[in-house]
Simulated scan of single mutants.
Amino acid sequence: MDLHTGMQKMSILYQTGKGVSCLGCRGMCKAFEPHPWRKICKSCKCNQEDHNLHSDAEDDRKIGRLLADSNYSNLTARVKGGDGVRIYKRNRMIITNPNVTKKDPTFDTVTYEWAPPGLTQKLAIHYMELIPKEMQPIAGTEGAYYRRKQLMRQLPVYDQDPFQCHALSESEVKTMEEFVRKYKSESLGVGEVALPGQVGSAKEKANQKQKIEATGQFGNGKIAKGEPQHGPASTNGTPTKAQEKNEYRCELCKQPVSNENPVVYGERAGYDRLWHPACFLCSWCREPLVDLIYFWKSGKLLCGRHFCESEKYRCVACDELIFSEDYVESEGLTWHKKHFCCLECEQPLLGKSYELEQSKLSCTSCYKSTKKI
């Protein structure tokens, strides 16, 4: 079986939800029952991510599609026989430690389901130590589940693929395709991990060269307005004298950064900014940016979900972005008109009385009956 066929079969298994119990309601719901258009389970009303539906292959394919045709396509690989499909070259890390407490030599193996690419194992481990223990994506732990859930939450496939959306018109498909092309070109980024002042990519060197040329236009080496006062990193990858004095500061917490600890850079933000690993967060939801995938807008880091919501309305009912003018708004929330209906009985509610509680829309009858239970 080739990889492409295997991913298709795995996708069918997970879409049916066979054998995938819900973690949101603590296992009370034993299998995912898909709703025709809502992104929830019909049985327990929990979200898809609570059922942990996606497989590694699906996640890698989704991120591969996101990064393809962008500045980060080098993080993807073409699937053999996959009609041009690209998958995410996710960097896994396996740590093997000898167990010396036993008479016979044994080894303890720890597998990280994701690790920053391009680092030595020592530096990658150091990076992992700087993020909260419960968020470290070690296989078989809560951290691995958290990562997968964040992939679904922060980077929903229906925010990048119009054919994963529910019944878009031809004009809406074209509008969405242009929206996706634009954010890939102007906003999408993947963080780079390095020691302060030692970003190793060729992009960084080109960035520094452009800054040197720009400052030269002002004569006498004066710093252009808006340039960082501590100066850029030297182009040979070694810290400048100012940086050796530990003048780096995290963009989020503003605390000093040690030259011995790895930090995260974002190309879109410019290499004069850096973040502690635990501070590389979405400025909207304050959650860590999964696999360091970010969107840069107005000087802020955003996850994919909240970047899209800063540009487009999102339907509360189907969770998809709205690409038409045909929508309903109530109490700061939005719905496709066709989705403005009761969560329980699906009765259309346009022009009728309704109850809205914690983003859940109900007809008066269903609302009263649920309150009696």
Results as ranks from 00 to 15, higher is better:
residue 15 Q to K: 15
residue 15 Q to V: 05
residue 20 V to D: 03
residue 28 M to E: 12
residue 37 W to P: 00
residue 39 K to F: 01
residue 41 C to G: 04
residue 42 K to S: 13
residue 48 Q to C: 10
residue 56 D to F: 12
residue 62 K to F: 12
residue 64 G to F: 05
residue 73 S to R: 15
residue 87 I to P: 02
residue 96 T to N: 13
residue 97 N to P: 00
residue 105 P to T: 07
residue 118 G to P: 02
residue 124 A to F: 00
residue 127 Y to P: 00
residue 136 Q to R: 15
residue 136 Q to C: 05
residue 138 I to D: 02
residue 143 G to D: 06
residue 147 R to A: 08
residue 158 Y to R: 12
residue 158 Y to D: 14
residue 161 D to V: 11
residue 162 P to Y: 07
residue 169 S to D: 10
residue 173 V to T: 11
residue 176 M to K: 07
residue 177 E to K: 14
residue 188 L to G: 04
residue 202 A to I: 05
residue 224 A to H: 04
residue 230 H to A: 11
residue 230 H to N: 12
residue 231 G to T: 06
residue 234 S to C: 10
residue 239 P to C: 14
residue 240 T to Q: 03
residue 246 N to C: 06
residue 253 C to A: 12
residue 254 K to C: 09
residue 259 N to I: 13
residue 266 G to E: 06
residue 269 A to H: 06
residue 272 D to C: 03
residue 274 L to Y: 04
residue 281 L to H: 06
residue 283 S to L: 02
residue 294 Y to F: 10
residue 301 L to Y: 09
residue 302 L to S: 07
residue 305 R to P: 00
residue 309 E to Y: 02
residue 311 E to K: 13
residue 338 K to S: 12
residue 338 K to V: 05
residue 342 C to K: 02
residue 349 L to D: 03
residue 351 G to R: 06
residue 353 S to E: 14
residue 363 C to P: 02
residue 365 S to L: 08
residue 368 K to S: 15
